[in-house]
Simulated assay, not measured.
Amino acid sequence: MITLREINQNNWKECIRLKTTEEQEKFVASNLYSLAESKFYPSSVPLGIYHHETMVGFMMYDRMDSGYQNSGYFIWRFMIDKSHQGKGYGKAAMQAVIKLLQEKPGCKEILIGYKPENVVAEKLYLSLGFQKTGLIEHGDVLVYLPVSHQRA
């Protein structure tokens, strides 16, 4: 039902048209900003979240080369378009990226952050097995999923 696909010259405009609700804008950078940022961090991987042939969201991850544990991947962007929220796509997309990342060599954990007031994100991540690190970085609460203990 949900697939993750590379953002490329054929779908980047579709990606930047995706928007969060006005209330959620303070929680995540725009997709346009994220795609621009990905050009300066070439190891980052921007992905469209698709329900069949419709892009419903966006995520971007990168290998951790510093920071918390240096033994996995960091999901540093994640959003579902406002017109597609409440349909289970967020949870399905997170399960898909967890499966993708835990199959990568050397991935012992997956890290993601969220703003403390974003209770929806907190509930989603904790329901998938993420655990609080006790760290706050750039205003985000960091949670991690120990891959060796969890299979999506």
Rank of each mutant, 00 (worst) to 15 (best):
K19H: 13
T20C: 12
P46M: 03
G48V: 02
H149F: 12
I49T: 02
K99D: 12
N118D: 12
P116M: 11
K87D: 10
V143H: 01
S66Y: 15
G88Q: 13
K132D: 12
L145W: 03
A36P: 00
Q24G: 04
S34P: 04
F74Y: 11
S148D: 13
Y61P: 00
K19Q: 14
E109R: 10
K39V: 14
S127Y: 10
S83W: 06
W76L: 03
I2R: 00
A29L: 08
K123L: 06
I110P: 00
L145K: 00
N8A: 10
T133G: 10
V28T: 08
L101G: 01
M55N: 02
H51D: 08
G113H: 03
I16E: 02
Y50A: 01
V28F: 07
Q9F: 15
N10V: 15
T3M: 06
D140W: 02
V45N: 03
A96N: 09
L128M: 15
V28P: 00
L111D: 00
F130R: 03
K115C: 06
G134Q: 10
M59T: 09
A121S: 11
A152N: 13
L128Q: 06
G129E: 06
E109V: 02
Q150W: 08
G134L: 08
I75S: 03
A36Y: 14
I7W: 01
T21W: 12
N10Y: 14
E53R: 14
E6V: 13
A93D: 07
E103Q: 14
L142R: 11
I110Y: 01
S30P: 03
A152T: 13
E25P: 02
E22K: 14
E117I: 07
Q131T: 09
E53Q: 14
S43Y: 08
N8G: 13
V28G: 01
I16R: 02
N8R: 12
Y68K: 12
K39L: 15
M60H: 00
N31R: 09
Q102Y: 10
K13P: 03
G113K: 01
S71P: 00
G139M: 07
K13D: 10
I2D: 03
E23R: 11
L142Y: 07
N70A: 07
G139H: 09
S30K: 02
Y144E: 05
Q85H: 04
G113V: 04
D140F: 05
L4T: 05
Q150T: 10
L142E: 05
V28R: 04
L32A: 13
R17E: 08
I49Q: 00
A152R: 09
E25K: 13
D62G: 10
I2Y: 02
N8E: 12
Y73G: 01
S44F: 02
